[in-house]
Amino acid sequence: MTTSLTATPAAVDGPRGRKPRRRFTPATIMLYGVLIVAAVYYLLPLYVMVVTSLKGMPEIRMGNIFAPPVDITFQPWVTAWDSACTGLTCEGIKVGFWNSVKITVPGVLVSIAMASVSGYALANWRFRGSEFFFTCLLFGAFIPYQVLLYPLVILLRELGIFSTLTGVVVVHTIFGMPILTLLFRNYFASLPLEIFKAARVDGAGFWQIFLQVYLPMSIPIFVVGVILQVTGIWNDFLLGVVFAGNQNYPMTVQLNNVVNAVQGVKEYNVNMAATLLTAMVPLIVYFVSGRLFVRGIAAGAVKG
């Protein structure tokens, strides 16, 4: 066989080795074209915001919003953080920042803990009516917020936690549950059932299997859950306005108050700085954990 192959001239003259790739096919030009346009579309506003936040007001009044700053100043950032006026008080956006931290951290922890345990129970400990419960959850994931707003206000008022930090954390947990539970259930259902059975034979109970066997296997999906919740809760405006109460307004609400303040001149540089400060947290979260996020999504969320 081999001898006859090398003896044939066609086999020698024919293609051999790695297939050459053409650099500029119409397809690649299209692809890169679209990508570049999309990138510019998203990056240009960001660029404008950054340069504006570094200019003084006189320079802004000259009107060229694309020009880089001549005189770089960080004063707008300091003002935005420390002394910008939000409605009646002028303590900057830092109050909102700490409020958001106080809402986001417990909100994320509580909702992830509850959703992961429910997802695990739904996937591995079929109980009477668990299918029904699961269907309800699926349904819950698609109900628009606004429908539940008023009933929830009444519920929280009756519980005496309306306009408190606890109240807004509870609301975030409730709204996070359906989608997070689905996420966790699907991930746990994709883990090999035999591991679960082996653990049961080994005498591990509900919590032992969850904490000692499943949790260490599920870091990626927890990362996904944390990212979803951190960005979701941090970026939330509506629930914060309705449930948190004046003294607990999250950063997004305070940002709105800064930007939409009616009295005085509009300080564009301060507004831009405040906005960038508010966006900083989700941005950092994405940059730090982007790879893990993708891996987690690929590992479980789309399966099963």
């Binding site: 035999e194 059975k197 005498g203 000692q212």
Partner: peptide, 16 residues
């Protein structure tokens, strides 16, 4: 299962 005095080995190993 743990009280039955059994040990079990699975096809997919099922190691933790």
């Amino acid at each position: 299962p743990k009280d039955r005095g059994i040990g079990m080995v699975f096809q997919s190993y099922a190691l933790y």
